[in-house]
Structure formats: C-alpha cells, structure tokens
C-alpha cells in the first residue's frame, strides 16, 4: 500500500549561493584582493561614488570594478575613464547580483589581467534595497548607500541591508539643506539595528566626507591584506 513518509532535509535555501560566494571569496583571498559589495536603492549614487573613489584612490590602490547596475553601457564608460578594468555583468531581469554572476566577472578579470595585481574589487550591485543583502557575492565588506532624498524611515522599512552593512554612506549631503531631512534621525534609525556600523555622510558633488571614506577604505583594505598574507603565507 501507499504510505506517507517524511525526509528531514534542513537545508538552507541559499545554500547554493553561499557556496558560490565562498568560492569567490577564496579567489579574492588567494589573490590578495578585498571585495566590497556596494548596495543601495536605484539612484542613490553608487556610480557617482565609485567615480569619486576611483579618482581619489587610484593609482595608490589598484582597483577593478564589477558593474551589475547598468542602465546603459554609459555607466561602465563613466568608470573606464579612470583607467581601471570595469567588468559589466548582464543581470538580465534579476533584482540582485548572485554569486554565480560575480564568479563569471572575476574569472574574466583573472583571464584578462593578473589578478594578484589588484588590491580592491568594487562590486556595484543592482539598485534594490531588499534582496542584494541576502545574496552574498563573496564580499568581505558590505557598503550600503542611502541618499538624503530617500527619507529617514528607509532603514526601518528595509532593515536587512542596513542591519548587515559594515559601512553606511549617507549620500547627496549637498541636497540636505534643501530638504526636510533629519540626519540624526537616519543615524539613530540605523544604529537601532546596527550599532557598530561606520556611518559617513558624503556628497559626490561637493566632496564632503570623501576623505573620511577614503581613509576607511584604505584601512579596511590594509587590514584584510594583512590577514590574507598571513593565511596564504605570501
């Protein structure tokens, strides 16, 4: 006769993506690269921040960009002006980058360049506050951007990303005087769920806060490179 049986699985739904993220991170560690996953809602200023970052940190730091938020090829061209490799990922209609897409990007990077020459890979994720936080791509550091035009309540409404961020950049600070936005309230809302996050208010337009951001990036890259060389034994 037919009977009903039960099989216990206990498997994480994101298991496959997690395994892919570990694969990517192993590459980064072997190559001595720090990887940042840069996330925000659409238009919060990721590409503008990356442009400023490339202008401010290269050639001291060797940087490559994995671009997953292309509205047009123009975005990648904006970044290529800084003479860094910009690997564009075709995300199709996906609302986030996943580890496999980024693996394709870093394998291409390794094929076309000597990956050990790079210090930092900046991944610009798809503009979306919801799920990029859930799909690791092999990053060491999560950077979230929130523009002052988005309102104080966004961290409360989309908590997962803000809860996981290592650094929060509050962007478009030049616009703050024109808006009814309470910077302290944004900060308090984020700190409720992520007390240790580094928060830096910045403006890609005026340059406000960028030197603090650059220092933070240099420190993160330096610390991780130290650990990577200990483990790999270079």
């Amino acid at each position: 006769m037919h009977q009903t049986f039960d099989a216990a699985l206990g498997i994480d739904l994101l298991h496959a993506n997690q395994a892919g993220a570990d694969h990517n991170r192993t590459h980064f560690d072997e190559w001595g690269i720090t990887c940042f996953n840069v996330m925000s809602s659409p238009g919060a200023g990721k590409t503008a921040l990356l442009e400023r970052t490339l202008a401010g940190l290269t050639p001291d730091l060797k940087i490559a960009v994995i671009e997953g938020d292309m509205t047009t090829e123009l975005d990648a061209d904006r970044l290529r002006r800084y003479n860094v490799p910009v690997i564009a990922i075709n995300t199709g209609r996906s609302c986030h980058l996943d580890a496999k897409m980024v693996a394709g990007g870093i394998h291409r990077l390794a094929h076309e360049y000597n990956p050990t020459e790079f210090d930092l890979v900046l991944v610009e994720n798809v503009g979306n506050l919801v799920c990029p936080a859930e799909f690791e791509v092999g990053e060491h550091v999560k950077v979230a951007l929130l523009s002052v035009t988005e309102g104080e309540d966004k961290p409360l409404k989309y908590p997962v990303m803000f809860q996981e961020a290592d650094c929060l950049l509050i962007t478009k600070m030049d616009l703050a005087p024109h808006l009814d936005v309470d910077l302290n309230q944004i900060i308090a809302n984020v700190r409720q769920m992520n007390p240790h996050v580094t928060i830096i208010p910045v403006s890609a337009k005026t340059g406000e806060g960028l030197s603090e951001w650059f220092d933070w990036v240099r420190t993160e890259v330096g610390q991780l490179a130290g650990m990577q060389s200990l483990v790999v034994g270079h």
Binding site: M1, H2, Q3, T4, F5, D6, A7, A8, L9, G10, I11, D12, L13, L14, E134, Q163, R191, Q192, M193, N194, P195
Partner: peptide, 22 residues
C-alpha cells in the same frame, strides 16, 4: 540596539513528505 537575533533570519527547507509503495 538590536544586536543578537535569535529567530527570524531562517530560510530553510525543513522536510519533505512523500508517498511511496510499502
């Protein structure tokens, strides 16, 4: 602040029920 999340982050396939000839 909320620091120690004890539940709410799960995304898990717990078990499968299936019919089989015994």
């Amino acid at each position: 602040p909320m620091e120690d999340i004890r539940s709410g982050r799960e995304l898990k396939i717990e078990r499968i029920e299936y019919e089989q000839f015994n």
